[in-house]
């Protein structure tokens, strides 16, 4: 019987594990190998150059700016998204008068909030290109110009562009986490809210003392997802910004630099070295996040 079970499990696992090894693990391993060569993408036997790519990487200002942008996003994207999503989820589920139920029209809002999640990333990027346009056709700048003010270079001012990117990322991510947190809140037993309400809790105390602690597991998952999203951000930057990560590298991120070096400069070796660095950032972040947010699970 026991033998049969092992076989059963192995049978189910064989295909996914094989696919995972072939399409995930093997390319990773290869990337580590290519990172030590000067491969240009087409020649059959790349030359081994030792740690030359990594040494060059250390002196590459643009790459370190990209890392800095990723780290900034890593801190701010999860923070802003989770705070906003929690706020909305609370309003939708427990924000109504009397503490139970959501504000009026919460079902409608739930659908509306989810819209950005349904849009393809490229669509979002093109959409916001128009929103951010610096002339009279720009949704945000048109009122400014009408009032006689200077338009803001949302995507053209090097001091502003990264914040515009952050705004779009948050806008796009919030909807999903509202739904996720709503589901989390819905699974909290109603009696707990009622008990707290009887004890006189409402509004903020209810949220911070009851809802949030009971939702902590979900928030933690959301934080890790968003953190990885912040490290992997690519399409929005690539499609939306001038000079793909510009202007003047002011919005570039690691993934964009990897893509640029691999597929525009055909420096696959160098790009793989960047990929290796990104790999360690991601692994490091995941380990750190899991460790820091470890908490006792509350059973209910």
């Amino acid at each position: 019987m026991r033998h049969g079970r092992t076989r059963f499990v192995a049978g189910f696992l064989a295909v996914p594990v094989a696919l995972y090894v072939i399409y995930v693990i093997a390319p990773y391993a290869q990337a580590f190998h290519i990172a030590f060569t000067d491969w240009r993408g087409v020649n059959a036997d790349p030359r081994f150059v030792g740690t030359e790519n990594f040494e060059r990487l250390l002196a590459d200002d643009v790459f370190w700016r990209a890392v800095g942008h990723n780290l900034l996003l890593l801190v701010l994207l999860p923070l802003l998204t989770i705070v906003i999503a929690l706020f909305f989820a609370f309003l939708l589920n427990a924000g109504g008068t009397g503490g139970a139920g959501g504000v009026r029209g919460s079902r409608f809002y739930r659908v509306v909030f989810f819209f950005p999640q349904v849009l393809a990333v490229a669509v979002v990027a093109v959409l916001f290109q128009q929103v951010f346009r610096p002339d009279r056709s720009g949704m945000l700048n048109a009122p400014l110009i009408a009032m006689g003010l200077e338009p803001v270079g949302f995507l053209s001012d090097t001091d502003v562009a990264l914040w515009s990117i952050l705004g779009v990322l948050v806008w796009q991510a919030v909807g999903f986490y509202v739904v996720l947190f709503s589901a989390g809140i819905a699974s909290i037993p109603r009696e707990l809210f009622e008990a707290a309400a009887i004890d006189g809790a409402s509004g903020p105390p209810m949220f911070f003392r009851v809802t949030l602690p009971l939702l902590w597991d979900t928030v933690q998952v959301g934080w890790i997802y968003l953190g990885i999203l912040a490290l992997d951000v690519f399409a929005i930057v690539w499609v939306m910004t001038a000079e793909q990560g510009g202007p003047d590298h002011s919005t570039t991120v690691m993934a964009a630099e990897i893509y640029r070096n691999a597929f525009e400069y055909f420096k696959f070796g160098y790009a793989c070295a960047m990929g290796v660095v990104l790999f360690f950032f991601t692994i490091g972040f995941a380990a750190l996040a899991l460790r820091l947010s470890r908490r006792e699970r509350i059973e209910f």
């Binding site: 951010f132 346009r133 610096p134 270079g153 995507l155 053209s156």
Partner: peptide, 15 residues
């Protein structure tokens, strides 16, 4: 032209 830095070739040419 105001906003030039944020406009692309089609937008400036159309302007």
């Amino acid at each position: 032209l105001q906003g030039t830095a944020g406009l692309d070739h089609v937008q400036t040419q159309t302007a």
